Simulated scan of single mutants.
Amino acid sequence: MKLLLKPLLLSISISATLFISSCGKDDDSGPSYDFINQNLQGTIDGHVFTYGEGTVETTTFEGEEQISFDLYHSNEDITDVCDFFGFGDEVSVFFFMPAEVGLYELSLNFSDFSGRTVTLFNPDGAVNNIASIGAVEILTITETEVTGRMDATLDGENTVNGNFTVEFCPDN
């Protein structure tokens, strides 16, 4: 009986170990983004960001047609967004994406600095917070505007999530 008990306990122990270890987190835990259906908002260096208006223009970068976004805080004092140059007194968001409808996951490869990122800008000290976790989805592109949504995160103090609509300026 003692001879049977040792192998039986060993096999139960091995089976229990395999079972417990197989219940861990999967390597594929799903996407790194979760879009929230709201106006684009979040925090940048601890400052509240609420999207108000912005600009979008087409450009070419390394042979690829891109759209360049500048999204400004709703508190920014802007008379005409198309004449607004640079960055104002409030936190803002800017980024480039391909000029095509689609979902673009954010990433940053430090070995060659490739990937797609969103810059969460704080004018206090001109801090560029580079968000490389999440995604931007371009939903529509017309002759007059671009609609999309994003979930872009650097860390707990630098994250924005929600929907945006940006109009092309007339001279673009």
Rank of each mutant, 00 (worst) to 15 (best):
M1A: 08
K2P: 02
L3K: 09
L4H: 11
L5G: 00
L5P: 01
P7M: 11
L8E: 07
L9N: 04
L9A: 03
I12A: 15
I12D: 04
I14L: 15
A16Y: 01
A16N: 01
A16H: 00
L18M: 15
F19D: 12
I20D: 00
S22A: 14
S22N: 06
C23F: 07
C23I: 07
C23D: 04
C23V: 08
G24W: 14
D26W: 14
D26G: 04
D27Y: 15
G30A: 08
S32K: 01
D34L: 13
D34G: 06
F35M: 02
I36N: 05
N37W: 07
Q38A: 07
G42S: 10
T43Y: 14
G46M: 09
T50H: 06
G52K: 02
E53Q: 11
V56A: 11
F61R: 07
G63I: 05
S68F: 00
S68K: 00
D70Q: 10
D70C: 10
Y72D: 02
I78Y: 13
T79F: 15
F87M: 11
G88W: 02
G88Q: 04
G88F: 07
S92T: 05
V93T: 13
M97P: 00
M97F: 00
E100S: 14
V101S: 08
V101E: 15
V101N: 13
L103G: 04
Y104Q: 12
E105C: 05
E105W: 09
L108G: 09
F110R: 11
D112P: 10
R116Y: 01
T117E: 02
D124L: 10
G125Y: 06
G125S: 07
G125Q: 08
N128P: 07
I130T: 13
I133E: 08
I133H: 06
G134K: 10
G134H: 09
A135M: 09
I138M: 09
I138T: 06
L139Y: 00
L139Q: 00
I141D: 11
T142E: 00
E143M: 06
T144F: 05
E145C: 05
G148D: 03
M150D: 02
D151Y: 15
T153C: 13
T153F: 07
D155L: 09
G156V: 00
E157D: 14
E157H: 13
E157K: 14
N158Q: 01
T159P: 01
V160A: 11
G162V: 05
N163F: 03
F164D: 03
T165Q: 13
T165C: 07
V166W: 01
E167G: 15
P170F: 02
D171T: 08
D171R: 06
